[in-house]
Design a protein around this nucleic acid. Structure first.
Lengths: 198, 198
DNA sequence: ACCTGAACACCGTTCAAGT
DNA sequence: ACCTGAACACCGTTCAAGT
């Protein structure tokens, strides 16, 4: 009905609608049937554009990660970049309802090449002087931390409970600073392999 | 049939059976109906012993956390304890299928008192010289990291993908060491609030 | 090429009814 | 007190059939 010719749906319209349903209903309420209703279509129609629900969630997760990377332009040094990245991840996870849980569930894209991905991911840190293994390991650590922390932040009853025990939200920055500071001291930092510091 | 008098079910039998189903079917396969079948009972019978599925998952998660704490006897100092605890958490999350995801979903117990819980949780670190706020914040950081990292470890396709990018499993220890080392340097360590460093 | 209708094998939870 | 039977309102996914 929208246009005389051309399809009603496409991948991008699907993903956009899925984010809308996610916001309104949460991840547990994001069903293929509800998504179809939101798009004015029957549920089986979705399977023409997407392999299955897992693939859809995977594409949504990639958008969230991509936004975090996009929020991290050039930094003075790798420590600053890592701090910025950790904060951007937390912000992105919080920007979408159940964003962290969505990203934790997500599966890598079907045709994704690990070699190529590793190069892309390492790039910003390699440009700031880290070697590739350190760049990848450090990022895995920061992502794990931000994801785990954001899971608790997004778990309503748990967050309330933790917040009555301590200033939970402030603990994120304490942890992030500690991680970045600790990584700088670790043997994995190539700057410490040289003659500079003991 | 089991006994002429007395109930067929109780809370503990329920939880034990739930862990068995979790192992066989994974978290997505752990349904109230399957759990009932495993116990030789109809699904509605479970609701006599447990409020709902979320409460059941909460009790399972508490068992997992409790095992991690039990695996951390006295240590020389708070850094050693935190390292041990981080390792024990990872081990416990990995000891149960989807253990991390289960704990991330879990909600605090209905009647849980935050004040009392905070004291219990802080105790081992306070005994080693940390003040209470630091003890709670440091533990929140380590738990967040271990949980996030374990989510990736347990996500089959994601773990395979990451492992082709880097030695993913080794990154856990790198991160844990960095966190503990970084926390020791942070302003939150009361040992550094004295005359030592600026 | 793109979508619908009908169906299959599931869910969590409620509630009257049985014992 | 403790459990069953039947039901309600859902799921993801497949597949023949329509256009």
């Amino acid at each position: 009905m929208r246009r005389p010719n051309g399809p009603e749906l496409d991948r991008d319209r699907l993903i956009a609608a899925a984010f809308a349903v996610l916001e309104q209903e949460g991840l547990d309420g994001l069903s293929m049937r509800r998504l179809a209703t939101q798009l004015g279509v029957q549920a089986p129609a979705l399977y023409w554009h997407v392999d299955d629900k897992a693939a859809l969630l995977g594409m949504m997760a990639r958008d969230i990660y991509a936004a975090a990377y996009a929020a991290c332009p050039g930094s003075r040094d790798w420590r600053a970049w890592l701090r910025q990245f950790g904060g951007a991840l937390r912000a992105q996870f919080a920007a979408y309802r159940d964003g962290a849980r969505l990203c934790a569930l997500a599966t890598p894209a079907a045709g994704a090449d690990p070699e190529r991905q590793a190069t892309n991911i390492a790039a910003p840190l390699v440009a700031l002087g880290l070697d590739r293994p350190a760049a990848l390991a450090f990022q895995a650590v920061v992502i794990s931390y931000a994801l785990g922390w954001s899971m608790f932040e997004a778990n309503g009853p748990m967050h309330d409970f933790l917040d009555r025990m301590m200033p939970f939200d402030e603990s994120f920055t304490i942890g992030l600073e500690a991680i970045v500071g600790g990584l700088a001291l670790s043997g994995a930092d190539p700057a410490r392999a040289g003659p500079a510091l003991g």
